[in-house]
């Protein structure tokens, strides 16, 4: 039997939108990072971390199959702005990380369905192109 999950953690379902607290990067740069959980939090039982992908306001030079372009409303910005969910720009979040993030809500069902579709293609590309996403 695994340890009991904090009940609040069970709210962290696939499609949860999180604001990661600002971290200062080398050079003194800080920037907000928004993450979408790609798995339900119960994966934490099995693996100790959960995979999330980032959204970005960056406009890419071309559309990739693992991108989902959505209204920036999902990250608390104006509905008129757009942001891109990049399903292969990934981070592994541990339980303690998740609890430090600000919960912003859930993706609408239709957006989540698109993220799932995009994520599958992203997974395939990571394998095909042998892209290293996480340190071993």
């Amino acid at each position: 039997m695994g340890k009991n999950l904090d009940l609040s953690l069970q709210l962290y379902k696939k499609g949860t939108v999180l604001l990661i607290p600002a971290v200062t990067f080398p050079g003194g740069k800080t920037k907000p990072k928004y993450a979408i959980l790609l798995e339900d939090a119960d994966v934490l039982y099995k693996r100790g971390h959960i995979i999330a992908c980032f959204t970005t306001s960056k406009k890419f030079d071309r559309f990739y199959s693992w991108h989902v372009v959505v209204s920036a409303k999902i990250i608390g910005k104006s509905e008129k702005e757009i942001t891109t969910i990049d399903c292969i720009n990934r981070i592994a979040l541990k339980e303690e990380h998740i609890k430090k993030c600000k919960f912003l809500g859930y993706l609408p069902k239709e957006v989540l369905e698109e993220v799932e579709e995009a994520n599958k293609l992203g997974e395939m590309y990571i394998k095909a192109a042998k892209i290293k996403i996480f340190e071993e």
């Binding site: 406009k59 890419f60 030079d61 071309r62 559309f63 990739y64 199959s65 991108h67 989902v68 372009v69 959505v70 209204s71 008129k80 757009i82 891109t84 239709e110 698109e114 579709e117 995009a118 293609l121 395939m124 590309y125 095909a128």
Partner: peptide
């Protein structure tokens, strides 16, 4: 351009269009 492929307000991309983009990247 992402906006051309997805619509400026971020409308849903069809599975067909997404698969075309995937094939192009491969």
């Amino acid at each position: 351009m992402a906006t051309e492929a997805t619509g400026k307000t971020g409308q849903k991309v069809s599975t067909e269009k997404r698969m075309q983009a995937f094939a192009k990247t491969i």
